[in-house]
Structures are given as structure tokens and as C-alpha cells.
Amino acid sequence: MAPWLRLAITSTVPHQLYSEEFCSAYSSIDTLKDGVPGIIHMIGNTSKKKILHNLSVDNEENDAINLHQARIQERPILIIDSAWPPKPLRRVGVADGSKFHWIQNGNSVPTSFDSTIKLFSRLLGIISQTVVIFVDDFSDFSSVFELLSPWIRFSCLDIRYRPRLLLISNAFNKKGDPQLFFDRLLRYLTKLQHIIDPTKPHTKADSIEMCQKCFESIQLIPDYPGVTNLIFKHNEDMIARRLASKWVFSASHLQRIIKSAIIHFSLRRTETFNIVLAFRGCDSKKSYKDHIEGL
């Protein structure tokens, strides 16, 4: 399947970062119409490929974020497939306004890491029900912390749409290792906050609160043959929770929300992305009040 999104930088100076959206990848959402799909965001490399292969999903080798469709029993599943570590961004000569959107990054020379974190924490975290990180695909635990720490710091999400985070590793087969990993993550966050603002005291309890505002829960899971089924059980639980809080969208609405969010985060804007306004664009006959009541 064609990639959903690709990142690029210009060859001119100063470098600017652009996102390139591929409309063809949305064809899989089109086929679902008014169905309510599950949405799982997978981050990794070798271990992730094994999971995708088990689902008979093509896993493309490129620098893009891919969108795949699978079906588990009667549930359609959309998989956001993110390679990690991110590959070097390709360069383009002149950005075509109809094809590329500029991303304000805050760095004179944007990096693949910065841009990926921005998308993960501010866009993909909103629509994903479950985020799966394959820890063994990273060089070490510190690399995982470098991915998670800005995500946790930047994302204070509404309680209705916080995703559940699943961290999968062979290391978690050993007794005590899951708690050790979580303690190290909290220490890393606490230390980072002290570096960012040494004038403000930051405690372990503050780091725990940040995690709770970003993720519905953090689950550390051993890698074993049945882990694929466990991932989908977690996602079904998240779908049930969102149904209970009336925070689910049909495939056609998700398509509109994703496209609106890409454009929003790709332009010079200071206001927060309003998912209700994006949702409203799906049905212009409804008033803003009707959409609020519907959500």
C-alpha cells in the first residue's frame, strides 16, 4: 500500500521541513465507509515487521509513515506503521504548494527525530487507540526514553482520547524488569524537566502525573508468540472505553480528521488543533452545537 505521509526538507538554506500527503493511501479508509475501525500505531523495525507479516500486511521500506488495513475477526483495523529509527529525510529542490505542507519545527535545521516526535505527539496520539513500541528494535532503553519523553511532555490529552501505550520487549520476560524500566523512565523525565527549568522543583510524582495525562495506561509486555492477539485484545478494550465515552469515529470521519490535522500542523499556527471543527467538515449540514452534542 502507498505510504500515508512522507517527510522532506528543502535543498535551499535555511532548510525547511515539509510533509507530503499521499491521498492514495486513504483508499483503504474509503472502503470502510461508515464502519468504526480500530486504530493501532506501531513503532519499530524488525520486530514490527514480524507482526505485520503475521497480518499479511505489506511493510514498505521507506522513510514514510504507512497506513495499512487489516481485519481481525469482524473488526476492521487501521495500522499506522512508523519505522524506527527514522531514516534521513530526503531533500527536495522546490516545495510544490499543492503537494507539500510546511511544518514549523522551531529548529533552523529540522531533524527527522524532531519532526517525527511532533507528528506522534500532536497528531497520531489523538487518533490512535493503542500505541505499540517494539523496544528491542531500539539500540537501548535510553533511545526509547528519548522518543517517549518529549511525547509525554508535549501531550496533555483529553481523557477521552488518550491512547494506551504497549511496550514490548524480550527483556520484560525477566521478573522485576518491567518495574525497573518504568522507574528509569520516570527518573529520565524528572531529570529532563530539571534541565529545561532548573528554577522549578520537579518530582517523581510530577512525572507520573505527566504520564497519566498523556497515556491511558502504560503496559510493559514480554515478547512471545501470542503477543499479536494480546495487542488486539488491548485495542478492543480501548474501543469499548471510547464507545462508552462517545469518542469514536467512522472511517469517513477519520479520513477528514487526519487530513485536517496534517494541514493544521503543517502551517504557521499557534492555536490548538480543534478536532470538533475537523469533524464538522464531514457534515456541513450540522451546526457546531450539534457536533458538540454528538461528541
Results as ranks from 00 to 15, higher is better:
79 I>W: 04
273 F>S: 02
292 I>H: 06
153 R>M: 13
252 S>M: 07
55 L>D: 07
196 I>H: 07
172 F>V: 12
95 A>D: 11
128 S>A: 13
118 K>A: 04
294 G>R: 09
146 E>N: 10
54 N>R: 12
18 Y>K: 07
290 D>S: 14
101 H>Q: 05
187 R>H: 07
37 P>L: 02
171 A>P: 00
149 S>W: 01
127 I>M: 01
141 F>D: 13
150 P>Y: 04
76 P>F: 04
207 S>A: 14
250 S>I: 07
279 F>Y: 10
105 N>R: 02
181 F>A: 11
12 T>R: 15
147 L>K: 03
204 K>A: 10
75 R>G: 04
222 P>G: 04
269 R>K: 15
185 L>T: 03
189 L>W: 03
185 L>A: 00
208 I>S: 10
210 M>T: 10
179 Q>N: 15
1 M>W: 06
149 S>I: 05
66 N>C: 12
64 A>H: 08
272 T>P: 01
220 L>P: 01
211 C>H: 03
181 F>Y: 15
143 S>I: 01
275 I>D: 03
130 T>D: 01
30 D>H: 08
56 S>L: 09
115 S>Q: 11
200 K>Q: 12
81 D>I: 02
60 E>C: 06
2 A>L: 09
18 Y>F: 15
8 A>T: 07
10 T>F: 01
171 A>H: 14
44 G>V: 00
148 L>W: 03
151 W>H: 08
231 I>T: 04
188 Y>I: 02
177 D>Q: 11
9 I>L: 14
97 G>H: 10
188 Y>M: 06
276 V>G: 06
48 K>Y: 05
273 F>D: 05
79 I>A: 06
18 Y>H: 11
234 H>M: 11
238 M>K: 11
140 D>G: 05
131 V>P: 00
94 V>Y: 05
6 R>T: 12
119 L>S: 02
194 H>M: 14
117 I>M: 00
189 L>E: 11
227 V>K: 12
251 A>Q: 08
177 D>L: 15
85 P>I: 10
253 H>V: 14
23 C>W: 14
137 D>T: 07
229 N>I: 14
147 L>R: 04
248 V>N: 09
18 Y>L: 12
12 T>F: 02
190 T>G: 06
89 L>H: 04
206 D>I: 08
120 F>R: 05
90 R>Q: 09
20 E>K: 13
82 S>E: 13
287 S>Q: 08
2 A>S: 08
43 I>C: 01
111 T>P: 01
289 K>N: 11
229 N>Q: 09
155 S>V: 00
108 S>L: 07
9 I>K: 12
250 S>T: 15
85 P>H: 06
259 K>E: 09
233 K>N: 13
264 H>S: 12
270 T>Q: 11
75 R>K: 13
19 S>D: 10
216 E>S: 13
265 F>H: 15
87 K>F: 05
187 R>G: 01
134 F>C: 09
125 G>F: 09
188 Y>W: 07
134 F>G: 00
93 G>D: 10
235 N>C: 10
175 K>D: 15
92 V>A: 02
1 M>E: 11
236 E>I: 08
1 M>D: 10
137 D>R: 08
119 L>K: 00
228 T>L: 15
41 H>I: 00
255 Q>T: 15
178 P>H: 05
230 L>K: 14
256 R>S: 06
174 K>P: 00
127 I>N: 02
181 F>S: 03
161 Y>A: 00
30 D>Q: 09
19 S>H: 14
144 V>G: 00
76 P>N: 08
245 S>G: 10
101 H>D: 01
